[in-house]
């Protein structure tokens, strides 16, 4: 996993609550056996006017310049709800997103993001509102500093706005170091063996 230190990029505002993983990556694109090739189908039903995905919908945020190059997604509550498909964070990552900011995330989706090094940032509703209102005035470029647990941007009036965000300390460590989670666990093999030795027969 790539190490996450700081990231600066354009914020794409997606003003929809309860965006589920079916919307992020519809089922017809789940028949691959590799981890690549999902980015082009991200938000397929909203992004394209036709089922074949040939005609981009000019009104969809990710089809408008400069948001085709956005790397930070700003969205609403319960983002990533529904299916456990990791294909959803794979699609977001392949499109170019490094950070997703929302007032809340669905649990499985949140864990999937951490596991692939895509940073989910939870902010208070009020801070999310402020971000949306600045995005409404024009493209916002935002910087995330993982070590400082802080994100910041400059407003149209040249004011700097900074928000601290909370991240589980171990998650932060894993993202910053690009920890191989399986390797980490395999270092505890003695504990797994000890656990297995005391399990009841029915378990």
């Amino acid at each position: 996993m790539e190490k996450f230190t700081t990231h600066t990029g354009i914020v794409a505002p997606l003003d929809i609550a309860n965006v589920d993983t079916d919307q992020i990556i519809p089922k017809q694109f789940l028949q691959k056996t590799s981890r690549v090739g999902f980015g082009q189908h991200l938000f397929h039903d909203s992004r394209y006017l036709d089922p074949a995905g040939q005609q981009p919908d000019p009104d969809f945020i990710l089809n408008k310049p400069p948001y085709q190059n956005a790397s930070i997604l700003l969205t609403r509550e319960n983002f990533g709800c529904g299916s456990s498909r990791e294909h959803a964070p794979w699609a977001l990552e392949e499109f170019g997103f490094k950070v997703i900011i929302a007032p809340s995330f669905a649990d499985i989706f949140y864990g999937n993001c951490i596991n692939i090094g895509l940073l989910p940032i939870t902010l208070a509703e009020q801070q999310i509102e402020v971000l949306f209102s600045h995005c409404a005035q024009g493209p916002v470029e935002l910087t995330v500093d993982l070590a400082q647990n802080c994100l910041s941007f400059t407003t149209k009036d040249q004011e700097t706005v900074s928000y601290a965000f909370h991240l589980d300390k171990f998650h932060q460590y894993c993202l910053a170091q690009g920890v191989d989670s399986i390797g980490w666990t395999l270092n505890k093999l003695d504990k797994i063996i000890a656990y297995e030795a005391q399990m009841p027969a029915w378990q």
Binding site: S84, I108, G111, I182, T185, I192
Partner: peptide, 20 residues
């Protein structure tokens, strides 16, 4: 509970999962 594919791999290799 439901898990993502990275976790499927984790269970394959270790028969455990990191969980909060």
């Amino acid at each position: 509970f439901g898990i993502g594919t990275s976790e499927v791999e984790h269970v394959f290799a270790t028969q455990t999962l990191p969980q909060t």
